[in-house]
Design a protein around this nucleic acid. Structure first.
Ligand SMILES: [Zn+2]
Ligand SMILES: [Zn+2]
Ligand SMILES: [Zn+2]
Ligand SMILES: [Zn+2]
Lengths: 146, 146
DNA sequence: GCCACGTTGAGACTGAGTCTCGACAAACGG
DNA sequence: CCGTTTGTCGAGACTCAGTCTCAACGTGGC
């Protein structure tokens, strides 16, 4: 019943109260393997009768985003989605079919960014890279059905 | 009065009618050096009394996005913005101070992406890279005032 | 107990974008 | 030339995302 949840840990560590609504939202987010939209999260909270108001839900999302344990990504469709992840700089690899996301370390990206900075004369402070494709699992399924 | 406008050309080339509202929106977008939000575009259309309805404005944006001459980017603040650009794969370098954007060719990014694909086992179909920082101009200003 | 502060829920509000519908204009076919 | 089809438009309702205000409540500290 009380599985370890890094999201709750992060809240605790940052000195926030571990209230029931926050625990509920944290649990909900933790249960997603991939990305989720605000709408989905709202619906899930309603379905499970968590008794979390919309405002609190968004407040929790904002808080967790600041702590770096949740990130907002933008899908190719233009939709916004959120994804739980570790609070360190990295990028997201999103499966366009099943929504599963993988964290990606900086394999050569930092270098490319540095080169862009050199060529453009801009001082680059931050960047965001999102990658879309098919995870191994969905590739296999595609090959079978083809 | 009739400056060349690549946006209008793109509409023409794709076989769309060059109606007054479309010309108006195209002219408006063309006049921006950097990114603009939906709200700004709306306000600009209203101020100049272009007589373009909201629906048409968004329809035009959608159309131009499909044609690749306008792209939607996501600022660090979480805001959506649009930017006029050439219909080829490239990335955007956005000045966080003045909003000026520069197009960036793929300096080493493709390679990094290929490496990520190899390591992760995902089949990567597309990616999006957005870079934020200060343009030369704004760097100079910062140095002076510092 | 009192007070400060953090947190919450309800609900109004804004921004972004979509959708429907009726009008109109261009394109087309006879 | 007329009728039809297709493209485009404006108005306005609608949805979704997110923010804000405000009053209520709980948990401290003192
Ligand atoms: Zn992540
Ligand atoms: Zn998948
Ligand atoms: Zn561009
Ligand atoms: Zn600048």
């Amino acid at each position: 019943m009380d599985e370890p949840n890094p999201i709750i840990d992060a809240l605790d560590l940052a000195g926030y109260q571990l209230t029931a609504p926050r625990r509920a939202v944290a649990g909900l987010i933790h249960s997603y393997g991939g990305h989720f939209t605000a709408l989905e999260l709202e619906a899930a909270a309603r379905d499970r009768r968590l008794g979390v108001s919309r405002a609190t839900l968004f407040r929790a999302l904002e808080l967790l985003t600041e702590l770096g344990v949740v990130e907002r990504i933008d899908l190719t469709t233009g939709e916004h989605a959120y994804v739980a992840c570790a609070p360190a700089h990295h990028h997201h690899l999103v499966c366009s079919r099943c929504g599963r996301t993988a964290d990606v370390e900086d394999s050569g990206v930092a270098e490319a960014v540095a080169q862009i900075a050199r060529r453009s004369g801009y001082r680059i402070d931050s960047h965001r890279l999102e990658l879309f494709g098919l995870c191994r699992h969905c590739q296999a399924k595609t090959n079978l059905s083809a």
